[in-house]
């Protein structure tokens, strides 16, 4: 795609910055190895380490990847609220990372291994981040129960697959419906950004977002 990343992000909820993080990839690799050493647990376990940048400053990304800085600046999402590193295994079901009518919440991710449709690539439903698109409520429930409700496997849901190579940066609006299928073990670096809240309701939403980022996916603050 050649479309301006900020337009894709605003209107469809995602964009890819090809190779943008390649210059810092050695630092990311080193920080990852320090926080999630290879031999700690079986290769079949999903693992996460929060506060990644605080524990390994070499994992910082803002100010080091001009394409990402420019994108975040255009979106106004200049405040990094959390970071994490993950060993992902297997599938990730259809979901959004919470749904916020107010404020702006972005997640930037880099994968340590190539991903594609047959190998754990992130896939999104374009435009599903916008409240006026009508995706919230029953549509989300049906997506989460896709086998029973829709008669489709998760990887048969019509979506855009974001195939990546190490060093590519994927940025997505955390409202956007997303998933990953057919994945083997893959490393992921992730940074979460928000637009500094202005109104009281935006501050409340931002607080909920931050709490949710630090809590297991089984718990939600609403």
């Amino acid at each position: 795609m050649t479309a301006a990343p900020h337009l894709l992000l605003e209107h469809f909820g995602f964009c890819v910055l090809p190779g943008a993080a390649l210059p810092v990839l050695p630092d990311l690799e080193e920080g990852f190895a320090a926080l999630l050493p290879d031999q700690e647990t079986p290769a079949t376990d999903r693992r996460t380490r929060f506060h990644a940048v605080e524990h390994a400053p070499g994992l910082a990304i803002t100010g080091r990847v001009p394409e990402l800085d420019d994108l975040l600046s255009r979106a106004g999402a200049t405040s990094m609220v959390s970071s994490d590193v993950n060993v992902l295994v297997g599938d990730s079901y259809w979901h959004s990372d919470g749904f916020y009518d107010e404020g702006l919440y972005l997640r930037a991710v880099v994968y340590g291994e190539p991903t594609d449709a047959a190998g754990g690539a992130l896939r999104v439903i374009p435009g599903s981040h916008r409240p006026e698109g009508g995706w919230q409520g029953e549509p989300v429930r049906q997506l989460m129960e896709h086998d029973r409700a829709l008669g489709l496997r998760g990887d048969e849901i019509p979506a855009t697959v974001l195939a990546t190579r190490p060093g590519d940066v994927v940025v997505f609006h955390t409202n956007v419906l997303h998933s990953a299928w057919n994945g083997s073990r893959r490393r992921q670096w992730a940074w979460n950004f928000t637009r500094p809240p202005v109104t009281a309701s935006e501050r409340t939403a931002a607080s909920q977002y931050v709490l949710n980022r630090f809590v297991s996916g089984t718990v939600r603050f609403s």
């Binding site: 435009g127 698109g133 009508g134």
Partner: peptide
């Protein structure tokens, strides 16, 4: 096509 755009075509510029 854009899946889901029938519900709110104007949301897909």
């Amino acid at each position: 096509l854009l899946p889901g755009s029938h519900r709110a075509p104007a949301a897909y510029p």
